[in-house]
């Protein structure tokens, strides 16, 4: 009984510790979210002024326009491709990060990995402009070497946006994979080799399957961030690319159609939510299998 009372008191104390962050989240996440949801069901007049009346008009607009639907699809596909490519590149990096023999090499690699996270997305994207622009670094070098006569147009397309996404999002994929790699008991590799399996095949039969949780976690993070990013495509791809975040940005800044922007935002959220839920479900299934 005493114990029970003590536990109750402890619980109260934990809630007290959480209170500031909970209040912050209610004030700056939950309330804006509700307001946004409210906004998405409002009507607009001919001058895009938000009305007091409610309807499904904005969602009807989103789902009746084939352009909008195509944009939703392309956004999700681009995020998917980005996530797959990022994870492929992240895996060897994570492997090196975990298995580098010398500890100062590991520390150095961690610093290199974290540095981009400390830099603003705008700065990172501008760096790409400096490199890829018509009079940028690559074009100048290629022209002066007489490889090409005319500067290549490397900006303002989807490929460049994906490359920039990969660069910006790579650390988010490396870290979860590195975490699950370092959780693997080194004697598993030894056990596999003592049973006659070579190092490479051991990787595919033991190491790779055991990093699936890190892989899925990395996928979820990179996919969500890529699907929702607008600064990178805006600076490198231009506002005409069929990406939902750019579309939302346009509706807010140029068309001032706030209810439509809100409806588009919720569409994006739902799309990402469906894909992410699927992967969370896979992760849970994997864990359930491991624990029998």
């Amino acid at each position: 009984m005493r114990r029970f009372i003590k536990n109750q008191r402890n619980k109260g104390f934990y809630w007290l510790l959480l209170l500031p962050s909970i209040l912050f989240l209610i004030g700056f996440l939950v309330i804006p979210f509700v307001l946004l949801a409210d906004l998405s069901f409002r009507d607009v007049d001919a001058y895009m002024n938000t009305q007091d009346t409610y309807s499904f008009a904005q969602y009807a607009e989103v789902f009746s326009s084939s352009t909008n639907l195509k944009t939703v699809g392309i956004t999700l596909i681009v995020a998917f491709i980005t996530a797959i490519l990022t994870l492929t590149l992240a895996y060897p990096a994570a492997y090196l990060l975990v298995y580098a023999k010398r500890s100062f090499v590991r520390t150095l690699l961690y610093i290199i990995l974290i540095t981009p996270l400390l830099t603003s997305m705008v700065v990172l994207s501008f760096a790409w402009i400096v490199i890829l622009a018509q009079n940028g670094l690559i074009n100048q070098i290629l022209v002066s070497l007489n490889v090409i006569d005319e500067p290549l147009s490397m900006l303002w397309n989807m490929q460049t946006v994906i490359v920039a996404y990969i660069q910006v999002l790579l650390p988010f994929a490396v870290l979860p994979i590195a975490t699950s790699l370092s959780d693997i008991d080194p004697s598993l590799t030894k056990a596999s080799m003592s049973l006659g399996e070579s190092r490479i095949r051991t990787f595919f039969r033991v190491i790779l399957p055991l990093t699936i949780p890190g892989f899925i976690a990395g996928f979820i993070i990179v996919f969500s961030l890529a699907a929702g990013s607008y600064i990178t495509p805006l600076l490198l791809g231009g506002r005409l690319l069929p990406l939902l975040p750019l579309n939302i940005y346009q509706q807010v800044i140029q068309m001032s159609n706030l209810p439509l922007a809100a409806a588009l935002s919720f569409t994006l959220l739902a799309g990402v939510g469906i894909v992410v839920s699927f992967f969370v479900w896979m992760l849970n299934r994997w864990e359930a299998r491991m624990n029998g």
Partner: peptide
């Protein structure tokens, strides 16, 4: 046979 058995958890 290893000290921590090293069974493949998956």
């Amino acid at each position: 046979v290893f000290q921590n058995y090293a069974l493949f958890p998956h």
